[in-house]
Design a protein around this nucleic acid. Structure first.
Lengths: 115, 115
DNA sequence: GACATATTTCGACGATTATCGAAATGTTGT
DNA sequence: ACAACATTTCGATAATCGTCGAAATATGTC
């Protein structure tokens, strides 16, 4: 993971609306949310939201897919885990006390059924 | 933890020099590093570095103490853990698959000796 | 007190960012 | 083809940010 990418990701998260947006998607899970639903949840005009979605997408933190006329956004958990891992890497010079980075492993609805 | 503080912390980290600086301190551990040593390690002019140190300090990510004429900076591990925890909070709606946030518990030299 | 060292504050500059309405694009149903 | 809906692109504006030299502040030494 290049620090250039990490800076881009952190910049994307370093903004009230985008931080709220990302957390909304993190908590929404793999099903994600449509742009319209996000705009309503955050109370942000559509054009502003679109700008923020583009920032997060460009940073690789969220992913877009289409469903009918709606665009559905989901958090990229792998990117989130990598970001956290990068920040805490070699914490305290690798002392045993420092726990390894957390990992969120998302499951789809189907995976949950078959488990 | 208020999202306002988190945004401040993320903004502080969302910059090449400051990200490198913070990671340097995270890896340096509780003993920390003097401003001069950091400036040399990063290849940044003293006045620029001072600006960045102030950003990180203001965001509560690092802490300053004095030793003679040097100012020693250390990473605030509690703040780092809180930041990561906030980001991953309630991941996937609280699904059991998602591991809890990582935690780095720093030890001082003395604590390590007596352990 | 004078001097060297360590670091911060000041001031100015160019570059990037967030905002949002209006218009454009893509999608669906008739 | 047309109308309705969902979302993005464009353009302009105000605000914030990173940079660094010069000067100021603090500390330690002689």
């Amino acid at each position: 993971m290049l620090s250039e990418h990490v800076v881009r990701a952190l910049s994307a998260l370093a903004q009230e609306h985008r931080l709220a947006l990302f957390r909304l998607l993190v908590q929404a899970g793999p099903e994600g949310l449509a742009a319209g639903a996000i705009a309503e949840a955050l109370g942000v005009p559509a054009s502003s939201l679109s700008f923020h979605l583009a920032q997060l997408t460009g940073a690789g933190l969220i992913v877009q897919r289409r469903d009918g006329r709606s665009l559905i956004y989901t958090a990229d958990y792998a990117a989130m885990n990598a970001l956290v891992g990068f920040l805490m890497e070699n914490c305290c010079g690798g002392g045993a006390v420092c726990a390894p980075a957390a990992a969120c492993v998302a499951e789809t609805k189907d995976e949950r059924k078959s488990a």
